[in-house]
Simulated scan of single mutants.
Amino acid sequence: MALRSNRILRWIILFIVGVFIQSYIAPPPPAAAAMEFTDSVKASLEKTAEAVGGKAKTRLIKQYSDLADLQKKINAQDTKTTSLRLSNETQLNKVRKQITNLDADKILKLDNQAKAARSKLQPLLDLHSSLNKQAAAVKALKDKSLYKALKQKADAMKPAINLARLHIRNRNAELKTAKSERTRKTKEIRAVLSQIDAIKIKLKAERSAISSKNKSISTEWKNFKTALKNKDAGRAEDTLNRLGNLSKQILTHKQNMYGLEAQISAIIKKASARLP
């Protein structure tokens, strides 16, 4: 029974870790549409165009050429966007690491100073406290002479004790102020970075739109190859027209994605500028 419980617990932990990791891994760009501008496809197109001849031939070849050019632009845009996205991920990780280590050296130094002050001055404070306790104990025994001697020693230490306590308070106050300042800076920088969340939602919408249009392109491309196989120039022209429109829309979506990544880049730079 215990072994089974351990297995269930291990599975739950692995599941949670997996979800956590997935939430921080940026999704890859949408897969390219299933259009392959091969020599065999081009040869089939040329045969179909030759069969119909005239203006229809010129129009068909131009449509195919324009579509191929569009695909090259889409691929180039993918490369450009992916490069910026990877750069953003690198810079974002760098900023997050800097946030974690924000003022770490300063706070460590102040913490050490506060500890050193307490360690150095605590014996003096303990001695003063001990003298007061001894004086109180002697007073209870009504030994006026010893009480007076102990009290004088304790009172003589008061200026030094007050300075010691002040020094410790100042060191603790400096440490507290530094920690509060770090908390304030951290909140401000993270508030800037949180603006990325809204942009990621927009990126997701663009990817979804591209994915949907890629499915349509896949269907239309199959129809296009079937039309070429049957030497149906009219149907081939219609499918090329639809493929061109879909590809233009996809290019626009991908350009939008680049613009959104550029916004993320600007946000990261803004957050980075607030770091020391």
Rank of each mutant, 00 (worst) to 15 (best):
I217R: 04
S83M: 12
H128Q: 09
L193H: 04
A233N: 10
K62D: 04
R165C: 01
I21W: 03
E261S: 09
L228H: 07
E181H: 12
A116D: 15
I74M: 10
D105Y: 07
A160K: 15
A156C: 06
V17A: 07
A135Q: 10
K185H: 04
K144Y: 09
R7C: 00
K62H: 03
E206W: 08
D232E: 11
Q98H: 02
E46W: 02
E50D: 11
A68E: 12
G53Q: 11
L121H: 09
A76E: 12
E261T: 03
L84E: 07
I74S: 05
I168W: 10
A227G: 04
N101W: 12
D69E: 13
K57G: 01
K109V: 07
K222W: 04
N6Q: 15
S247E: 08
I264S: 01
A76L: 07
E46D: 14
E188I: 15
S272Q: 14
I201N: 06
G234T: 15
S218E: 15
Y258F: 11
L203N: 08
L260V: 02
P159Q: 13
K187F: 09
V192Y: 04
A273V: 04
A135T: 05
I264T: 13
S23N: 12
T239H: 03
Y24T: 15
R7E: 12
E46G: 00
G18Y: 09
P30T: 08
K47I: 09
L203W: 08
E220R: 14
I210K: 05
L3S: 11
K179F: 07
N112K: 13
Q255M: 11
T38R: 14
T81D: 03
Q152T: 15
K185M: 13
N6R: 13
P159K: 10
L240W: 10
P276H: 10
K248Y: 04
K222L: 11
T219Y: 12
K269H: 04
A2P: 00
L110C: 08
R7V: 11
K73L: 06
K187E: 10
M257G: 06
N223D: 14
K120R: 08
G244H: 10
P30D: 06
K202I: 05
P123D: 04
E220N: 14
I13R: 10
L141I: 04
I217W: 03
P29Q: 12
N101I: 00
R96V: 01
A31W: 05
P27M: 05
A136R: 10
T38H: 05
I196N: 02
L163T: 14
G259H: 05
K269M: 03
S87P: 00
E174G: 04
Q263I: 08
N75V: 15
Q255A: 02
I13S: 03
A173Y: 07
S211Y: 02
N75Y: 02
A236S: 01
Q255W: 06
H167Q: 15
A205V: 03
A137Q: 13
L228E: 04
K202G: 01
I264L: 03
N93M: 11
A43H: 11
S129T: 05
L246Y: 10
S208N: 09
S180D: 13
K153P: 02
S211F: 06
I264H: 01
T81W: 06
M257V: 05
S247Y: 03
A49T: 00
I199R: 07
D232P: 01
S211D: 09
K94R: 13
N88C: 07
L193I: 05
A116C: 02
I16H: 03
L246S: 09
N172C: 01
